[in-house]
Amino acid sequence: MTMATNAPAVIATDLVKSFGDVRALDRVSLEVQAGTVLGLLGPNGAGKTTAVNVLTTLLRADSGHAEVAGIDVLRHPGAVRRRIGLAGQYPAVDESLTGIENLTLVGRLNHLPTAQCRSRAAELLEQFGLAEAGRRFAKTYSGGMRRRLDLAAALVARPSVLFLDEPTTGLDPRSRIDLWKVIEDLVTQGTTVLLTTQYLEEADRLADRISVVDGGQVIAEGSPSELKSRMGGTLVEVRLDEQSQARRVAELLTDAGDGRVSSQGTLVRVPASNGTAVLAEVVRRLDAQNLSPRGLQLREPSLDDVFLALTDRFAEDEQIRSTG
């Protein structure tokens, strides 16, 4: 965040892209400060990949404006390609080439001098823990190794802006954590990253800012903690045995907290920015009615709460009303 004083590395304004009747992007605006990470968070079909494809010059937007590294994406796509790296949703490595050959080829196509292609390939293989596998065909690599090789290929020409489309989809937990570390290191070295993800944990861990996308629109934007606090801060959660019981308890606790009480299935949520005071009040009221809940906890809101609330149409409308 200390480097965020620079000009934005990515600016997108009112991007629209339709495929037939489907509006994949419906006036999407984004901004990524240089040296920071923006997470595009959203479910499948939200428009995340389309946004990345427009910003990386693979697709032309129908309308709107986009700049990457200060260059107009629509007018000068060639110049943009010299400054970006892209690791797509599926690893784009050539399985019949070795790790070294894959990276050297990308170096040559990036027009690096031959000697530099080789040294850069060796350097990246070392950095991503693939030095020993460098002479093996990529088809012998595990899923995690392919992802790392793909990411290395995106970095060959030392791009100033890196686009990662669902970088850890399909990886086991161990490989995912490894890849997160790699991405964190890159950011520390000053690379700007725009990543898409369906995983809240991933966005929470890697992103400085998050744009939540659904139905081709950005429906919320902020830092992870801002998005969480938009949910009203701390919550008291009461879990009951039956749904009917939950509805009764929700009614009982209507004015116990400092916000709108909601119930979902057998779960009742009471906003509690006063924390323990609300918890104590909840316990008193339940006790007075001789109700013993199955579970009771005071917790910080997770990005899951934000995500579920925002991407669910009805909840979204309520959210807009409650926040004014």
Binding site: G88, A92, V93, L109, N110
Partner: peptide
Amino acid sequence: KGFINRLRSLPMARSA
């Protein structure tokens, strides 16, 4: 396999 997309994101000549 997505390899064409990688190529399209590179500053190489498209004719190549």
